[in-house]
Design a protein around this nucleic acid. Structure first.
Length: 445
RNA sequence: GGAGGAAUGGCCGAGUGGUUGAAGGCAGCAGUCUUGAAAACUGCAGUACCGGAAACGGUACCGGGGGUUCGAAUCCCUCUUCCUCCGCCA
């Protein structure tokens, strides 16, 4: 969400951003709704002002007749208000619905493009791992090493379900522990946030495509509502499963005014992540590349309202992800996301993609986004500017530190040897307790 | 799951239908006094939205939502959160 004043002052830029992102947004309709809302608001406030005068008139009235006259006047005003108020509410409702759809502007360095094919590679760590044999994919490796079971995963959990077993389980958690330690060293406060949340954190961060949750388009799981209507009280509770720690981490400060001196706030959350993948039927159907639940360490930053500072913090986060890819010895590249591949709220975005030999391509293992104040307005997080004493919305940014299963894919496939065994990257060895994962005895062919 | 209690400004805390955006206190800011500090005294101080170049004016806000009334912090309904006790349980 943006500020209506800002939208009016920067309408050309917003029009351009909407077009570049491939969104259809009628800005004139918004302005009309705003005008209508304001006209009605003024009318109502005037009536209310008259209504408030009644109190004084009552106090001044000396006789009972005078008093009755004033009360009659009050009744008249009340009737007028009752007629106007629904009109105002409808106008405001219309305005709010449009406001929520206004896309954020895009940074000047964002490449224009229609889809992910036009993302721009800004760094490449070099050619992928070379093998003296035909490399296997992580599914085959997982089977040989008895660390991944997709069949039973599907049996128990359903489509895209999986079990990580034995050293696979240790390796997955090791990746998480490694990432959490790394970002903690870099000054990000580690957190284990809730994954079962109310609607507002997801609305606030932009994970609901509209103003309300829509199971037909939103990639979010809704947990069955607990409906107590049977016993007379109509208590309903909507809960959702987060797809990343980002909503929980950012909503932590919702409704608060932060002390400017604490900014930038750097947080890192470890969480299980749930994704319905509702728009991805038939995409990446094999293995654990695209799954319904996985573990991830996510970083977020709440910063002062300064674009350059925010961009710098975004780069700081990306560089931490890059450092981890390097330490893990994974070939990777860095992409700047083009306008058409950016969600409405984003100002500037980068992806990290690790090389996955078994898939013979790069696969997304991280994404760093700068939203400026777009999320902070929805979540209502401000800070008090030290110099002016003014309250401003913070700028919010997020970045994948490491996602467990996708990094696991890249590790298994890059570190595989001809016999199916996998060398464990140095930095993860303390967590697994060994340097090589070998096929269980008696199973090698 | 059962039974009670509570929710007021940054904090504490008055206030049960009419100049209450809200007494009083603490903390905060500015000033007087002081060599400086403390103390004392004086003054200023909430947030959001609308109008305005500004000064300023208006409206709303006493956990959220709804209702009664000419008028609600105050009465009614409802939800949420917190506390206490009992029961149950990882």
């Amino acid at each position: 969400m943006l500020d209506i004043q800002f939208i009016r002052q920067n309408q050309e830029e917003i029009r351009k951003a909407a077009q570049a992102k491939g969104l259809h947004f009628d800005i004139e309709k918004l302005f009309k709704a705003d005008d209508e809302r304001k006209t009605l608001l003024q009318e109502i406030e005037e009536l209310k002002s008259l209504k408030n005068d009644i109190n004084d008139l009552i106090a001044q009235s000396k006789t009972d007749d005078e008093r009755q006259e004033v009360i009659a006047k009050g009744k008249e005003i009340k009737a007028k208000l009752e007629e106007r108020e629904p009109l105002y509410l409808a106008a405001k409702c219309q305005f709010d619905a449009l406001m929520v759809q206004v896309p954020n502007i895009i940074s000047p360095d964002t490449p224009l493009g229609k889809s992910d094919e036009e993302n721009v590679e800004v760094y490449n760590s070099g050619p992928g791992t070379q093998f003296g044999f035909t490399p296997r994919n992580h599914i085959e490796i997982g089977k040989i090493l008895d660390i991944l079971d997709l069949e039973r995963g599907a049996k128990v959990s359903g489509y895209r379900g999986y079990y990580l077993k034995n050293d696979g389980a240790l390796l997955a958690l090791g990746i998480m522990m490694y990432a959490l330690k790394k970002v903690t060293e870099k000054g990000y406060a580690p957190m284990i946030p809730p994954t079962l949340v109310k609607g507002f954190p997801l609305f606030g961060t932009g994970y609901f495509k509209g103003a309300e949750y829509d199971p037909a388009v939103d990639e979010v799981y809704q947990v069955a509502t607990h409906d107590k209507e049977a016993d007379g009280s109509a208590a309903k509770e909507e809960k959702f499963l987060v797809g990343t720690a980002e909503p929980s981490l950012l909503a932590y400060y919702s409704g608060e005014v932060l002390d400017a001196e604490t900014l930038p706030l750097r947080l890192a959350g470890f969480s299980q992540c749930y994704r319905s993948e509702i728009g991805s039927y038939g995409k990446d159907t094999k293995g654990m590349y695209r799954v319904h639940e996985f573990m991830k360490v996510e970083q977020v930053v709440l910063a002062a309202a300064d674009v350059e500072e925010a961009n710098r913090l975004q780069e700081e986060m990306v560089s931490i992800s890059e450092e981890m890819h390097k330490e893990l010895g994974l070939p990777y590249r860095k992409l700047q996301i083009c306008s058409g591949d950016m969600s409405p709220g984003k100002y500037r975005a980068f992806d990290i993609e690790a090389w996955m030999p078994g898939l013979n391509r790069y696969g997304e293992t991280g994404s760093a986004s700068n939203f400026l104040d777009w999320q902070a307005r929805r979540l209502n997080v401000k800070y008090k500017d030290k110099a002016t004493g003014e309250r401003k919305y913070v700028y919010m940014l997020n970045n994948t530190a490491l996602p467990s299963p996708r990094i696991l894919i890249s590790i298994l496939e890059n570190y595989q040897r001809e016999d199916g065994s996998v060398v464990i990257p140095e930095v993860l060895r303390p967590f697994v307790g060994k340097s090589i994962i070998e096929p269980p005895k008696g199973t090698e062919k």
